[in-house]
Write a protein that binds this DNA or RNA. Structure first.
Lengths: 199, 199, 199, 199
DNA sequence: GTATAACCGAGACGGTACGTCCCGTCTTACC
DNA sequence: GGTAAGACGGGACGTACCGTCTCGGTTATAC
C-alpha cells in the first residue's frame, strides 16, 4: 500500500519522442521559418514521430512552440546584490548570451511574434519566459532607487523599458552575427548615465 | 490620341474595391488576428470583393498586409532643428500617436512579427516603414554629437536602441489603453539624462 | 430577361473531373476492393483530382459509390407483353449481361454489401437500382396471374424471390467466369415449371 | 506427469474475456454496423478488455467477425431421408429460424458482405458456414433426381440456386420483422412445383 | 514456496485516411 | 478588360483507428 505519486496505467509516454519533437521544432524554427510556416506534419516527419504523438502532448502548434522555446532559457543568474550596475549587467547578459546563438536568435523573433490572438505565441511566451526576468530587473531598480544608487524620482517602468527595449532592439534589428560580449555592459552604462553630454 | 502617361484599354480598376480591401484587412487585424490567422477569403468576403480582385493587385497576403500597414503611417514631422531634445520628441511622438489607436496597436504588433522568412512581413515593414524614421533619429543624434549637445563619445546605434527600444517596448508590452501623451518626452529625457542619481 | 433554368454564378463544375472520379472509383472497385478498402484519397489520386472536388459533389464515400454504381445500369428493356416467359427472360437478361462484365461483377457484390447502417451502400443501391426492375418483374407476374398464364394462387413475392434470388445467387456465388448466355432463360423455365418430376 | 494434450505454462487465456469479445462484436453488429464501421477499439471497450487480448486471439477484425458469426450457427438438422420435400424444408428451416432473430438478421447481411478482397468476410463465411449446408441440399437434390422424386434432367445447381436464392432474398430484402414460420415450406413447394399454371 | 511464464488492462507508439479549410489559379457570365 | 462568384488541384489541419509495443499487475504451472 503506497501513497506514491501515482504510476499511471498503460505504457508511459516516451521521453525520447518528446525530446525529438522539441528538437525538430527548434531546428525548423532555426531554419528561419516563422510559426506560420511551421507545420506539425513537418515536425512529425523530422522527429520520426506520428502526428498523434505530438497532439497527445500539445493541443496545438502554438503550445508546442511555447514549450520548445522555453527549453532554451537559461536560469536566472545569481545576483551579487552589491551594485545595481553589476546586477543589471548580469541579468541582461543572460539574454545576450542566449541571443548569441543563431537558433535562439530566430527563436526570440518568433517569441516576439504577432498579435494578441488567443493562440498567439507572443503573449504566452512573455508570461512564461520574460516575466520572471523583468521582475528581477524591476527589483534591482527598486533597490537602487531606495538605496540611493539611482535617481530617487526614477520611474521604474521607464528604466525597465530603456534596458529591455534596447536589448530587444539589438536582438531583433541589430547586426547579423553574434552580439558583442560587452553589449549588456554598454547598454547598462548608457542607460544609467544617459547619452547627453556630462556637465 | 493622347501622349498622356498611359490610359490603358478596358475598364479601369475600381478604387472603391481597393479601399474596401485595405479597410477589411486592417479591420481584421484590429480584431486581433495575426498575419497567420488572416485569410484572403475572409478579407474578400468582408470587403465584398472577389478573390481575383485582390490577387490582381497583390501577389500574396504579405504584400497586401505590408501595403495596408503603410496606409496608417503619418509622414515624418518637420524638425525645428534647434534642440536635439525637441527633435527627438517630435520624431518619437509620431509613433506614440499612431500607436495610440487600438487598430494601430495591433498593426504594430503585426509589423514586428515573426522570423526572417522571405515572405515575412517583419523585414519588409521595417524597410518600408521604420527605416526612414530611424534614419531621421540617427541624423539628429549625429548632429547632437557634433555640436556638443550629446556626449562626444556617444555610440549612435546605442542611442537609437535606447530610444526606439523603449518606445517599442511600451507599444508592445505597455499598459493596455492609450499611451500617455507625454510618453515621448519622458523617454527622451530619461535617455538623455540616464537613470542614475545625479551627482 | 430570361426565365431559363438558372445559369449559376461562378465557374461551372467540370464534367471531365466528374467522369474521371466515377471512372477511378469503378476502376478501383473492379480491382477487387470493397467499399471499406476504397479510399477517397486513392480515388482522387487516380482521377488526378483534388479531394475537394470529390467532396464538393458527394458528401461521403458511400454516396459516391452509389452514384458510380448507378452509371453501370442498363435501362429497362422494352417488353413485348405477349408471353410472361419472354418478358421475364428479357428482364433477367439485363442483369445477366451486366454481371457478365468483371467490373460489374465486383460492383454488384459491393452493391449487395453489408448491413443497414445509415451510410450503407446496400439499402440505397437497392432503392435506386433494383427497385424499378423488381417492380417490372412484379408487374409481369401479376399480369400472368390475371390472364391465366400463371398459377391463380401464385404468391407474387414468392415468385419474385425465386427469380431474383436465383439470379443473385449465380452472380454472387456462381462460376468465376462469364455467366452462360442462356442463364436467364433457364432460370425462368425452372421457376415456371418447378424442379419436381412432371406427372 | 501427464500425457494430456498439453497444459502450457503460464496463465491460461481467459474464457470470460473471449466470450465477452464475441458478445460485444455481435452486439455491435446487431446495432446495424457493417464490418467497416465496426472498430476493434469499440469492441474492446464494450467487452471491457484490452486490445491486446483481442489481437492475441485473432489476427484482424475480419477473422474475429467470421468467428463471431460462426457461433450463431445451428448444427445441421438430422434428415429423415424419406421425402425430398421434408428434407429440404428441414434444411431451409434452420436458416429461417436463425434469420428470425434480429441479431442474426444483421449478421447474415454482414456475412454476405462485399467484395472478394483477401480480407473479405464474405468468401470465408461462405466456406465456413454456408458450404456444409449447401452440400447437404445438393445431396438431397441428387438423391431425389436419382430416385425419381425430382426431374431426371434437373440441373442440381439450378435447384440449389432457386432454393437458396429465395431464402437469402427474404432474409436480405424481405419484410422487416420475423420471417413467417412456414416460409421454408412455401419456398420448397414453389420451387418444386413451379409458379406456372398447372395443366 | 517461490520462480517463471503467459496472461491481463491500459494506453502510448508510428502510421493512414478522414473530412475541412484555405491557398493561389482558373473559368464562367455580366458590365 | 475589370468584376463577383465559385470550381479547380494542392497541402496542412486536427481526429479516429489501425495493429504493435510497453508498462505494472495477476494467475497459473513447474521447480
Amino acid at each position: 500500500m503506497t501513497t506514491q505519486p501515482q504510476a499511471r496505467a498503460g505504457r508511459p509516454r516516451s521521453e525520447k519522442a518528446e525530446k525529438a519533437i522539441i528538437e525538430a521544432t527548434l531546428d525548423l524554427i532555426a531554419e528561419g521559418l516563422g510559426v506560420a510556416e511551421l507545420t506539425i506534419e513537418a515536425i512529425a516527419a523530422r522527429a520520426g514521430v506520428g502526428k498523434t504523438t505530438i497532439y497527445r502532448r500539445w493541443a496545438n502548434k502554438e503550445d508546442l512552440v511555447v514549450d520548445a522555446l522555453a527549453t532554451m532559457r537559461e536560469p536566472l543568474p545569481p545576483l551579487a546584490g552589491e551594485s545595481v550596475r553589476d546586477d543589471l549587467i548580469a541579468l541582461l547578459d543572460v539574454v545576450r548570451r542566449e541571443v548569441g546563438h543563431r537558433r535562439a536568435r530566430c527563436v526570440i523573433n518568433v517569441a516576439m511574434s504577432e498579435a494578441d490572438s488567443p493562440k498567439s505565441v507572443g503573449k504566452r511566451f512573455f508570461k512564461q519566459a520574460m516575466e520572471p526576468r523583468l521582475t528581477a530587473i524591476r527589483r534591482v531598480l527598486s533597490r537602487g532607487r531606495a538605496n540611493g544608487e539611482l535617481d530617487p524620482d526614477l520611474d521604474i517602468d521607464m528604466g525597465l523599458a530603456l534596458l529591455s527595449g534596447a536589448l530587444i532592439w539589438f536582438g531583433r534589428w541589430g547586426p547579423e552575427g553574434d552580439l558583442p560580449e560587452d553589449l549588456a555592459e554598454r547598454i547598462v552604462d548608457h542607460a544609467l548615465e544617459g547619452i547627453a553630454r556630462r556637465a
